[in-house]
Design a protein around this nucleic acid. Structure first.
Lengths: 192, 192
DNA sequence: AGCCTAAGTCATCAGGCGATGACATCGACT
DNA sequence: AGTCGATGTCATCGCCTGATGACTTAGGCT
């Protein structure tokens, strides 16, 4: 834009769209992020989204693919992983993926991809950990914890819960760790 | 409709709209429930919404007012109250109120009313209980638990988390009770 | 220098949304 | 019976959304 030596640059434009989209999808979720806003934040005409990605849904998939690591990440009961997820959410919003746990998108492609990624990155590692620890119904517990964490991270940025919003990453991670550990079998567990 | 003795009845129409709206707001949240769908489900022209309530937002407020009890309800750490909330969510969807914890509506009136009701019915009782039990940061903990429960109830009906959806009300209430109790101070709590 | 394709701009479309007001009709009342 | 307000129907408005294609322009190439 301000750089006179690079007035036209497809790579730069694509990257700007990806970054802007990642931010807006994280802040608002798929449905409430409009391609016009994405284009505006990227400093690019929104028609470029159709040119470079095919459409809004494909842009969303591209954002998820850009962010994805290769292997299966550690589960949220790992303290470091939880801190990382929480810090990221505090900095950048809940993340596009997490919204998909609560609201089906209006586009089937974006929906299907979100579903798979959410399970690969969050649910499955948790279920494995819980199963290894001997919890019963590990899959249901993993999905319940995922929904709970997502609820907290999204609720934190909704404005409806000010005391939750006011927590910093440390405090939030600490409290979430307490909640998460409730699903692990323990000697002092009260119900099972 | 099929009753020939009452072809026109403002009260009946109003009630039908309220019921249909309660269902659809519960299933989809405020933003994704359209007045056309509400009218269709009620068997009534959607223009009646404007006539009887003023608009979609006022209809939403009316739904919340219809459902509200008078006093402050017991908190979710009360087993019976939790069961009641869970059973209702399993039967009818998460409920219009709960959606407001995660997504601000697009209408400021609906938003403000939701916020207040959510705090009155859920957050405040929880915070009181936690404070009485000696937990620190009771308000933050109460809001965190609220967000977690709402995440679970909404996530259950999103389709993204099948094992969570498959839980019946008993199992769900049991697991949620475990999660909720994690925020109460206990002798075997690990972090505080 | 001139060309030609990649890159970017712009106007516009179709569809869905909430809202609105003109119109039709019912039915209670005098 | 006739009137008139209450009730219900319908067409349409204005707005926003994602998408599309015609058009313009930049800039590397020969």
């Amino acid at each position: 834009m301000t750089d006179p030596t690079r007035r036209r640059d497809a790579g730069r434009t694509r990257a700007a769209l990806l970054n802007a989209a990642a931010e807006l999808f994280a802040e608002r979720g798929f449905a409430h992020a409009t391609i016009r806003d994405i284009g505006e934040r990227a400093g690019v005409d929104s028609a470029m989204i159709a040119r470079y990605f095919g459409g809004k849904a494909q842009l969303y998939v591209a954002v998820l693919q850009k962010e994805q690591g290769t292997g299966e990440p550690p589960d949220l009961l790992d303290g470091e992983r939880l801190r990382h997820v929480v810090e990221r959410a505090v900095r950048q919003g809940a993340g596009p993926l997490y919204h998909s746990a609560l609201h089906a998108h209006d586009d089937p492609r974006a929906d299907e991809f979100s579903r798979r990624e959410l399970h690969r990155r969050i649910v499955t590692p948790l279920a494995r950990r819980l199963a290894a620890d001997g919890a019963d119904r590990p899959q249901a517990r993993a999905e319940l914890l995922t929904a709970a964490v997502v609820g907290v991270l999204i609720g934190r940025s909704s404005g409806t819960l000010p005391a939750l919003t006011a927590l910093d990453a440390d405090e939030l991670a600490g409290l979430l760790a307490q909640v998460l550990s409730a699903m692990e079998p323990r000697e002092c567990s009260r119900r099972f």
